[in-house]
Design a protein around this nucleic acid. Structure first.
Length: 498
RNA sequence: GGGUCGUUAGCUCAGUCGGUAGAGCACCGGGCUUUUAACCCGUUGGUCCUGGGUUCGAGCCCCAGACGGCCCA
């Protein structure tokens, strides 16, 4: 590399070389004493004159985001975890050598420390007037363009650090997500729920109908599955006497990537003994109102240009009623298996011969109703055929006491009164095993261990899962899950098989 | 998996009818001691995603592929 290279990376490396020659190029001796936002709160309201009369010492540090050099005086803007602060660097204040270095060796993106006094400029901007400046870290790669920042979506996900450096909105999304999780923990803790951690690796995948990831344990020489849901373990804890439990953690499903699906995603799953699915719908409304008040303020949020209000009671509608209304037929007509099958075929919904009435109803619902549920809506009474862990409805053995919550056309939550009759659960597992034998890759395994736990007696219980990523999407107005997952799965990041 | 749009300088993007590759920011050199995406002057920087094809000539047209966005399954 020659000194006259015009390549920016070469120039930065040349500058680093010069820093190395004169000593420690990566010092860790500067001690920051003030954050940008703290200075703004403490002194932002004082006048230029007041600050000049009673000088305040400050020491700030952060990444150099803007730089304006005017001969023998300059302004730089540093960004730290709290925000931005401008610094005023004058040759006559920091000394000729330091100022020459500052001009020659500093670049946008470097990390610097500035010590000085707090002042206001003629235009009223709070500024640290430097008495001492130090380059703490030389950044060897140029930052994205300062006006437009980084907008290439793929680059934003693959180099999330860059996205976070230059895109304040992106940082804000992940702060909001963290607040969401914190608020959710507080909500459950306050109500006597115990936070637990159950296995991520299961000998038998269970708790949801989904394709699992498979791995292998060498010492045990056995297959293990990354969990698709924590449900069966959480219920074993309820059997054990932890009558209110919750878990916030990752689940894994071996399915396609889409704006709504990442192979690993985060859910909160919670169980409450001596409660039913209606209690959980009530609790869910309470939870959502609290989260929205904490994070957005008020009762509503804006998503994809629409205001969605969680203030009013969330309507609850039976699945058959929702489908009948959407298609414009009598609810009674849906109850007949043959007639529903004809209807589905007429609507171009692919129906497989092995499907019973419940599966056809579910597919029809997903194809025709789901996307239209923009306002928050609970859909209830899911078919037993697609709900192998849910309690049968008292008034119709083909249905279960189950609900899902939809917002903006997306499933946000899924809950039900739990099936706690071990013999009926054994029958349901047997039916799933049959489907699996017939080639249904998503069907559940027959889980003897779980049945053994149920046989000890699980109190009447209701349980629910809520997708944290999807909730974060709603609360940050993000239309793709990749914007709320720090490192989303992308093609070509799968390891060494490519 | 299908459809569709895209891939040009480190970043954000133009590129007309097929005829020598452009701008802003960043970088380099110069000027400027209260600037505000600082400004002014002068430079540098290109595997136009890849591989074929058509053509006297391809960033542009055709074919195949890679990667990505969006829509659908």
């Amino acid at each position: 590399m020659s000194d006259d290279s015009r390549n920016e990376a070469d120039q930065r490396r040349r500058k680093l070389g010069e820093l190395r020659r004169r000593g420690d190029a990566y010092p860790n001796t500067f001690r920051r004493e003030d954050l940008a936002a703290e200075l703004a709160i403490a002194y932002g309201d004082l006048s230029k004159e007041a600050l000049a009369e009673a000088p305040v010492e400050a020491a700030v540090a952060g990444r150099v985001m803007l730089r304006r050099v005017m001969g023998k005086a300059s302004f730089i803007t540093l960004e730290d975890l709290s925000g931005r602060i401008q610094c005023y660097v004058r040759r006559d204040d920091v000394g000729e050598d330091a100022y020459a270095d500052f001009r020659r060796l500093w670049d946008l993106g470097d990390i610097a420390g500035v010590r000085g006094t707090v002042m206001k400029t003629n235009t009223g901007e709070l500024t640290v007037h430097a008495s001492e400046v130090g380059l703490l870290v030389k950044s060897l790669k140029p930052l994205p363009e300062k006006h437009h920042r980084l907008s290439d979506q793929e680059l934003r996900y693959r180099q999330r650090h860059l996205d976070l450096i230059v895109n304040e909105e992106s940082r804000q999304v992940f702060r909001t997500r963290a607040r969401l999780v914190t608020a959710m923990r507080r909500f459950f803790d306050e109500r006597g729920f115990l936070e637990v951690e159950t296995p991520m690796m299961h000998p038998i995948p269970g708790g949801a109908t989904a394709r699992p990831f498979v791995t292998h344990h060498n010492a045990l020489d056995t297959k293990l599955y990354l969990r698709v849901a924590p449900e069966l373990y959480l219920k074993r804890l309820v059997v054990g006497g932890f009558e209110r439990v919750y878990e916030i953690n990752r689940c894994f499903r071996n399915e396609g990537l889409s704006p709504r699906h990442n192979p690993e995603f985060t859910t909160v799953e919670f169980y409450q003994a001596f409660a039913d699915y209606v209690d959980l719908m009530d609790l869910t409304e309470e939870l959502l109102r609290e989260l929205i008040r904490d994070i957005r303020g008020g009762t509503s949020l804006t998503f994809e240009g629409r205001e969605i209000d969680f203030g009013p009671a969330i309507p609850r509608q039976r699945m058959t009623s929702a489908v009948a209304t959407e298609i414009g037929i009598a609810e009674g007509d849906l109850m007949d298996e043959a007639r529903l099958g004809e209807l589905a075929r007429a609507l171009n919904i692919p129906v497989e011969s092995a499907w019973g009435w419940g599966r056809v109803l579910m597919e029809t619902f997903e194809a025709r109703v789901e996307a239209n549920l923009i306002e928050p809506t609970f859909i209830t009474q899911y078919p037993i055929e697609v709900s192998p862990l849910a309690r049968k409805s008292a008034d119709d053995p083909r249905l279960t006491d189950r609900f899902e919550l939809f917002v903006a056309g997306r499933e946000i939550a899924n809950g039900f009164s739990e099936l706690n009759d071990p013999e009926e659960q054994a029958d349901r597992f047997a039916r799933q095993a049959e489907l699996k034998n017939r080639g249904d890759l998503e069907a559940m395994h027959y889980d003897k261990e779980f049945l053994a736990a149920l046989e000890h007696g699980m109190p009447p219980t209701a349980g629910e899962g809520i997708g944290i990523d999807r909730l974060a999407m709603l609360l940050t107005d993000s239309s793709t899950i990749r914007d709320v997952v720090l490192f989303p799965q992308l093609r070509g990041t799968g390891g060494d098989e490519s």
